[in-house]
Write a protein that binds this DNA or RNA. Structure first.
Lengths: 233, 233
DNA sequence: ATAATTTATTGACCGCTGTTTAATATATTT
DNA sequence: AAATATATTAAACAGCGGTCAATAAATTAT
């Protein structure tokens, strides 16, 4: 890791951006702000990053790098079946999103852009500079890598019998992923008291995880989970 | 419905905003744009709406009104069990979001704001003018109404035996709601071709719905669904 | 070593856009 | 008809993203 002076300064700006976005949010953070905090002129920021969105995409890439790390960490641990992996994934993502809500926002934002990107009719709504961003292209790949890892977890679960066999791994994973993403969007707002119906959702998570597991185990309780790797212990 | 001249002009601006936001997106639509298209001066827009975000909140309220309509429509139909209602809800929301992606964006955006709103540490990140917006307060209520209707659907399903009885309606509904919200965020991006793993998700929806139903029916297949109301036909 | 060229860096400036405001016209009430 | 409240406008303001010409620093070539 030689880390050229150029890379160093890029990182400096990036770190400042991460800090400020976390503190004040993306919209409320100005480019003057970033430059000032980094101790450089505003113009120089635009030498290292094409524009504000490009900087945000760089931050988003950082977020996805960490997310992919979570996926890989879970996947590489031995002695656990697919169901346990996916349970862990849900749990870990929730922790991840809570400990770093700015990263979560960035990920969700990117998914929104991707959605428009894949819908012809709304293609033009995306700021053209985003699509040119090098980071954006990389992000498409990283996102896809996460998907592949998740699908492999489901496949693993089907093999080891912890997940019911008739499911299609791709469909199943993305359904699980939907749940997780959606949970994060709702997890705060739902804790809203009411007179008519008592909503006790301070601890919604266990019920959520339970439902997720039941969905994966399925209606047929026939086959017993057989751990593929007893391994190591 | 007297519809005073003031209400009329408010509606006019709102309709123009809906049209422009749908065409160009919220960010790319300027207030000059809105005013010009509505045939009024820009300053007048600020007489009817506090600011741009307030206008967006008004648009978001329209979106939630329609959404609540979907919830109520499904709930009031007789002769259907809870599971069918929730299945229909998922299906209808997906259609709703596809036919009007701007409304979907507005709803998702609002959920993001709510999330920050309920997290003390990020409270300050919300633009203070949003919280002052009359529409924002109303939105909190409408969102809650939707939640109540959804919870009642689950309760109904437990009563009529179409949903497994040990579930907590609140937790279950919000888990279902998470799935739906998450699905919409992912539904485009996922259709991404790959060499290693073939992902055929052009028609992910049926699998998604199937998993949702299985989750609700649960592992115990014992009791047969008994339709509560045969009614009317 | 020195010239030439590429890479960093600055600060001033531009234009757009959300927002405000003073002035004014129109409608409503007294 | 006066007084008051409601609409409406045009101009101006301020902040921010983004650009650019000038220049300094570093690197390469001669």
């Amino acid at each position: 890791m030689p880390s050229s002076p150029r890379e160093k300064k890029t990182r400096l700006i990036l770190d400042v951006a991460i800090k400020l976005f976390s503190q004040k949010g993306y919209a409320a953070t100005t480019m003057d702000d970033v430059a000032k905090t980094a101790g450089i002129s505003k113009g120089l920021s635009y030498f290292y990053f094409k524009n504000k969105e490009d900087l945000y995409m760089a931050v988003t890439k950082k977020a996805f790098d960490e997310l992919k790390g979570v996926f890989r960490e879970i996947f590489k641990q031995k002695g656990r079946n697919g169901l346990e992996m996916l349970t862990d994934l849900a749990s870990s993502y929730i922790s991840f999103a809570h400990s770093n809500s700015m990263y979560n926002d960035a990920i969700l934002n990117f998914m929104g852009i991707m959605q428009q990107y894949t819908q012809e009719e709304n293609h033009g709504q995306i700021h053209p500079l985003i699509l040119e961003s090098e980071h954006f292209k990389k992000l498409l790949d990283i996102h896809h890598d996460c998907g592949k890892l998740g699908i492999q977890m489901v496949s693993q679960g089907i093999k080891d019998g912890s997940i019911r066999p008739e499911l299609q791994p791709e469909v199943t994973f993305y359904t699980v992923w939907s749940m997780i993403i959606g949970y994060e969007r709702l997890t705060g707002p739902v804790a809203y008291e009411d007179k008519d119906i008592k909503i006790h959702l301070d601890n919604w998570k266990p019920g959520f995880i339970k439902l997720l597991q039941d969905m994966l185990k399925g209606t047929i309780q026939a086959q017993k989970p057989q751990v593929v790797q007893a391994s190591l212990f």
